[in-house]
Amino acid sequence: MENTSRPFYAALVVLALVLLGWGMQAAHAEGLAFGLFAFLTIGGGLVCIWERSVVRSAFSLLATFSGVAGFYVLLGADFIAVAQILIYVGGILALLLFGVMLTPPDMNERKLTRVLSGLGIVGAGTFWVAMKVGGSANWVVDPNLAEIASRPKQIGVGFLAMNLPDGEPGYVVAFELAAILLTVALVASVYIARRKKSDLEEPALEGGNA
């Protein structure tokens, strides 16, 4: 760890304590869990833009993805939470690392001032939008909310049945379209990566005798 990042990680620990304490004080165990996941999400993002080594930035996304999955669990959407881990951590992050690991560990890739000013602009913008929306939005809270349809069986029926149990049309067309899109993407990637005829021919050797 370079000396410049000591204060940053100290600030991160303080942030963790603040979030955990705040959550604990607001809603006991659930709040504690919320604070933990909020810290993972925000802290992962902060490390991602702070760290000058690309690989560390990529690894910090592990915390962000896991934190978001935790939020899904708190919202009762277990299936999406597990899918988030399976797809983002197991798939996308592994692929990302595969690419990023092949870059040399150059510590001077990113200028700190640029990172900080970017963080400031984006943060201020997000804060402004959040204040605007939070102040003017009229949140409707229905006390008789339907139970969250997060059980695997309900999701499977929703995706594959023409009609849902309550008579609404199902999502089978959208599901099948997504499947076709993915197949097209797979075939296209194989087509792009495949060996062309010109690749198979022996390249002409320079300098005469082979």
Partner: peptide
Amino acid sequence: DLGIFLVLALSSMTTI
């Protein structure tokens, strides 16, 4: 309810 799905997801995290 998600037993096996969760197991597969988390055991793929060891790769990272």
